[in-house]
């Protein structure tokens, strides 16, 4: 059974989460959706996970973006982290990348672009700065 790369999705808005899940599912990924950060962290922790990506809303309640990135990469260092954010700023984006995120994408974003960027991040994982 060929395993498809997993996309772990995190967003607090159910409608958005659902449409992201549908988008990645259609694109051939094993798309798994989470509204709760801690549920996501439990799912990404297993050691056998290596192919895929985390796509998360950068804006988590009462948590700075760089802390979010550090939590996620501590839980699973092998998965690239792609953050999504509406109404964010340069300092937050830069901080997120410096903390180890692969990408920081402003919402709304065109489906095709999002898929491309996630695909790129999976193809060349790695940390910047």
């Amino acid at each position: 059974m060929a395993s498809r790369p997993s996309i772990f999705l995190l967003h607090s808005e159910p409608a958005l989460l659902q449409s992201l899940q549908a988008l990645f599912y259609r694109a051939g990924y094993n798309a798994r959706a989470y509204q709760d950060l801690h549920a996501l962290i439990r799912s990404i922790a297993p050691k056998d996970i290596k192919d895929g990506a985390i796509v998360a809303n950068a804006q988590q309640p009462e948590m700075q973006t760089n802390v979010l990135v550090e939590l996620l990469s501590a839980a699973q260092p092998r998965l690239p982290i792609i953050l999504l954010a509406a109404r964010s700023d340069i300092a937050t984006a830069v901080q997120a990348l410096k903390s180890g995120a692969s990408h920081f994408i402003e919402m709304p974003v065109v489906d095709r672009i999002l898929l491309e960027e996630v695909e790129n991040a999976i193809a060349r994982p790695g940390h910047y700065a």
Partner: peptide, 20 residues
């Protein structure tokens, strides 16, 4: 005059920092 995509690209290409 920067924006988020510009900052992201600069850091991804190896810039150490990007300050507005």
């Amino acid at each position: 005059h920067g924006d988020i995509p510009m900052a992201v690209k600069a850091i991804q290409k190896g810039a150490m920092d990007f300050i507005a």
